[in-house]
């Protein structure tokens, strides 16, 4: 059967609601095999636009190459009060710096991370691997075949990024660096 875009909207919304991971484009296509990609894309764009322009407590966001429905950050205090949770453990500055190097220089070896940070980073890297924010992506074809590290899909989800190109460029930080020094 062939549906109108209007009919697709609530279906897509319901799927995004039940999913625990961001729903990717091809997952929508798989569920709606009779509908063209263009039509699904159009419906998704309208859904996101309509859903997010409504001043509700929820928002649909583009994360890790898919769509995810979350609460709006501005209501975190009340949600937290209801859930009786504290802000979860955050990453240390050392881990975040190491992660930044991996994110911008991937695929990267431990020695290359050391050269950029000017200090040993194996502990921070281990934490990142345990948290699955960083994954081993291969080995560098040089003597010793050192392990290459890169960021994972979990990294995108953890930091609410669409994809890696969603990160500001490193040059943007250079401007800030120049101003501050």
């Amino acid at each position: 059967m062939n549906m109108e875009v209007d009919e697709l909207l609530p279906i897509l919304e319901a799927i995004i609601y039940v999913a625990d991971l961001p729903v990717k484009r091809d997952q929508f296509r798989e569920i709606l095999p009779d509908e063209s990609s263009d039509k699904i894309e159009l419906a998704l764009a309208r859904l996101v636009d309509e859903f997010n322009s409504r001043p509700g407590g929820m928002i649909i966001r583009e994360v890790a190459g898919g769509l995810k429905m979350t609460t709006r950050p501005e209501y975190h205090e009340h949600v937290r009060a209801y859930l009786k949770t504290k802000p979860s453990a955050k990453l240390s500055m050392a881990s975040l710096e190491t992660l930044a190097v991996v994110a911008y220089r991937q695929p990267v070896t431990l020695a290359e991370i050391l050269a950029i940070r000017g200090k040993k980073s194996s502990t921070a890297l281990k934490t990142l691997l345990e948290k699955k924010l960083v994954a081993i992506v291969g080995r560098k074809p040089v003597v010793g075949r050192p392990i290459l590290y890169g960021t994972s899909r979990e990294f995108l989800i953890h930091f609410g990024l669409k994809d890696l190109s969603d990160l500001p460029t490193l040059e943007e930080f250079a401007e800030i660096a120049g101003e501050r020094l």
Partner: peptide
């Protein structure tokens, strides 16, 4: 860049999904 990640993490810690 690490500071930017810190801020993003802060925001992500303030949202929930099903």
């Amino acid at each position: 860049a690490a500071q930017m990640l810190y801020t993003r993490e802060e925001v992500e810690n303030a949202v929930w999904s099903s």
